[in-house]
Design a protein around this nucleic acid. Structure first.
Length: 233
DNA sequence: GCGACAG
DNA sequence: ATCTTGTCGC
């Protein structure tokens, strides 16, 4: 889908997509999804997965898995070009779309406000939140070493683009930002409610586990409903 | 030019 | 991202 794009093309495309961003308020959330990608080093095969959980209980209800071929390389600032096409393909397998999707990466906390979460949100016309494990853009004070302590992240122009969030004591913070069709504050609150006993919030943590098992051949492609009593991971 | 740099 | 050994905090 983006394999023929140069980084110059990609930059112009991100600037155009960013004009479509909308940060309206989200009413209520009943289901939340986590989306992630896994792949073998030096391979063009991407293993994409989306896990759908109840909110705020964080019980896994269903998940979808699919592969996608791409040769687009990873480059900081252009993650969406490598991951979004694969995520759109697995997204199509889901019969009832979740209210919000959490992506492993940034939303508007990006040089051109077009991190992978915003990119996917625009193309899927879906509410999204970005939750990255390390900082790509901007600066912040270190949040206190207390669960749920936060620190605003600002760019050189002083714009508040996201939050560093301590999801677990003695663990590095995660970086939360709105993707599309949600506000910054709602993004932060939603991620807080999605945190279990791990550093990574449940939606993306489960999605990561699932795509990894998919890549290793332990799970099959397609849409899967999870048995009510079954507890995975 | 130098440093930074999601996954 | 993936691979892999040791180490630290609770």
């Amino acid at each position: 889908m983006y394999d023929h794009y140069s980084f110059e093309d990609a930059t112009a495309y991100q600037i155009e997509l960013a004009k479509q961003l909308n940060f309206q308020s989200l009413n209520k959330i009943e289901t939340i999804a986590g989306a992630d990608i896994s792949f073998n080093k030096n391979s063009t095969t991407m293993y994409a997965g989306i896990a759908i959980l109840t909110y705020p209980e964080m019980v896994l209800k269903s998940f979808a898995l699919e592969t996608y071929e791409t040769s687009f390389p990873y480059k900081a600032g252009f993650l969406g070009f490598k991951e979004v096409p694969a995520l759109l393909k697995v997204w199509e397998l889901i019969p009832n779309k979740p209210d919000v999707v959490v992506l492993d990466g940034n939303g508007i906390l990006h040089p051109r406000r077009m991190g992978v979460a915003s990119h996917f949100g625009i193309l899927a016309n879906q509410t999204t939140i970005g939750c990255a494990k390390s900082l790509l853009h901007g600066q912040n004070h270190q949040p206190q070493n207390v669960k749920f302590s936060t620190a605003e992240i600002k760019n050189n122009a002083g714009e508040m683009l996201g939050f560093a969030l301590r999801t677990k004591r003695n663990c590095a913070p995660v970086y939360v930002s709105a993707g599309h069709l949600i506000t910054q504050e709602e993004s932060l609150n939603t991620i807080k409610k999605s945190v279990g006993n791990y550093r990574i919030p449940e939606p993306t943590r489960l999605a990561h586990n699932l795509v990894n098992d998919f890549r290793l051949g332990k799970l099959e492609a397609g849409f899967h409903e999870v048995a009510p009593s079954l507890t995975l991971f």
